[in-house]
């Protein structure tokens, strides 16, 4: 079951979250993790890759299905979560914490939702 999305994050309609910062952090929401089921494989961009807001930058694969990772931001990938690549279960267990996916030096953002807006979307 999904809880309320953390109020200090921003979100995409594709169920990614974005924590502003230098660098910023990107992950998927618990709504996304729950819908996918047990995640078994993450394909993430490489450190140094330029990524664009709204573009597909990776894949998240579970036993049951596969989902694309859309970047909430434009910028340069400065870190990927190797621990999550090695054990993707951490994304199910702690999607807003230890299950983060990317750290990005941000040059711009796409259209982002507040926690309130995202909660309303996810409840539909």
């Amino acid at each position: 079951m999904s809880g309320q999305p953390p109020a200090d994050l921003q979100y995409t309609v594709e169920h990614e979250w974005y924590a502003a910062g230098a660098p910023a952090t990107v992950g998927i929401t618990d709504v996304a993790a729950d819908a996918l089921g047990d995640i078994v494989y993450l394909e993430l961009p490489a450190v140094g890759d330029e990524i664009a807001a709204g573009a597909v930058v990776g894949e998240i694969e579970s036993t049951k299905s596969v989902s694309e990772l859309f970047s909430p931001v434009s910028g340069t990938v400065v870190a990927v979560n190797q621990a999550a690549i090695d054990d993707p279960a951490v994304v199910n267990g702690d999607p807003y914490g230890a299950g983060w996916l990317l750290k990005v030096d941000v040059t711009g953002t796409g259209q982002l939702l507040s926690a309130e807006e995202y909660a309303a979307l996810a409840a539909r």
């Binding site: 079951m1 729950d34 089921g37 047990d38 579970s62 036993t63 049951k64």
Partner: peptide, 24 residues
């Protein structure tokens, strides 16, 4: 039991209760 329910062939059935891999 906290199941995630899913539409399946006109029915609403449990997709998983917690972890599908653990159930498997």
């Amino acid at each position: 039991l906290g199941a995630t329910m899913t539409p399946f062939a006109g029915w609403l059935m449990p997709l998983r209760y917690s972890s599908d891999i653990a159930e498997h």
